[in-house]
Amino acid sequence: MSRAWIPPILVAAVAAALVAFLGATITDLDGWYRTLEQPAWAPPGYMYGMAWTAIYALVALAAVTAWRNTPTTQASDMLIGLFALNGFLNILWSLLFFRAQRPDWALIELIALWISIAVLIAVCGRYSKIAALLLLPYLAWVTFAGALNWEVVQLNTPFG
C-alpha cells in the first residue's frame, strides 16, 4: 500500500470514530429504553456494539476505496458530502430514538437513512464495486434495525 492511502484512511477512520462516538454518547440503554417492550427476536444488547463496530470499519474502508477512485474533485466532493449526510442521519436516528424517546419519529427518519445508504452504494459502485459491496452489511443492518424499530413502535405506542 502506498503512502498516498494514509491520509484518506486517517480521515475516514476519524470520521467513522466521531459518528460512532456521537451515536454512542446519545444512546442511553438504561432507564426509559429498558421499559420498552422488545420483540422476542431482538438481539442481545452486546450484539449492537459488535455490529456497529464492524459496520463503521466497513463504511470507512468503503469511503476510502471509492474516494481514491473518483475521477474528479467534484466527484470526490460529492462523495464526501454523501458520507457526511449519511453520518448525520445515523446520529439523528439515535437522537430521535434515545434522547427524544420517539421511536415513531426515528422510524420515519430511518427511511431517509436507508435511502442514503442505498444512494451511497449506487454512487460508490460507479467508482469501486468493492466499495459498494462493503456497504451492503450496513444496508442489511439498517434494514434489520428498521424492522426492529417498527416492532418497538407497534409494541409500545403511543409515544410523546
Rank of each mutant, 00 (worst) to 15 (best):
I91Q: 05
S76Q: 08
A66T: 02
W5M: 09
D77C: 06
A16I: 08
Y46N: 07
V19W: 03
A54Q: 02
A40I: 11
L61C: 03
W105V: 07
L18M: 09
T35Y: 11
F97N: 01
A4P: 06
W52D: 01
T35L: 15
K129N: 10
A15Q: 09
N90Q: 07
V123P: 06
N156G: 07
S76C: 06
I55W: 05
A17H: 12
V123K: 04
A12E: 04
S128K: 03
I117E: 02
P137T: 11
L18K: 05
G81D: 01
L95M: 08
L89F: 00
R126S: 14
I91G: 02
T65E: 13
A75M: 04
A66L: 01
I55T: 05
G49R: 02
D30R: 15
I6L: 07
A51N: 04
L29G: 02
L107M: 03
L10M: 03
S2K: 14
D28S: 00
P39Q: 08
A16H: 06
I121N: 05
I9Y: 08
L139Y: 10
A12I: 00
L10I: 07
T65Y: 07
T53N: 01
Y33T: 05
N69E: 14
D30A: 15
M78Q: 07
N69G: 02
S94P: 11
P8I: 11
L18S: 04
S116V: 05
V59K: 02
T35Q: 15
M50K: 13
P44T: 07
V14G: 08
A132K: 14
L58P: 02
K129M: 10
L29I: 10
A60E: 06
E151S: 15
T53W: 04
A4V: 08
V152H: 08
L148K: 09
L29S: 06
G87H: 08
V153H: 13
Y127I: 14
N149Y: 13
R99F: 11
K129T: 13
A12K: 07
I9H: 11
D77L: 13
C124L: 00
M50R: 12
L107N: 05
L139Q: 10
T157D: 13
L18D: 09
W105T: 14
Y33C: 12
A54G: 15
T143G: 00
P158Y: 13
A147N: 12
A100S: 11
G45A: 14
F21S: 13
T25C: 10
G146Y: 10
V142K: 11
A40F: 11
G87V: 06
F159E: 09
A15F: 15
V119Q: 05
W32V: 04
V153W: 15
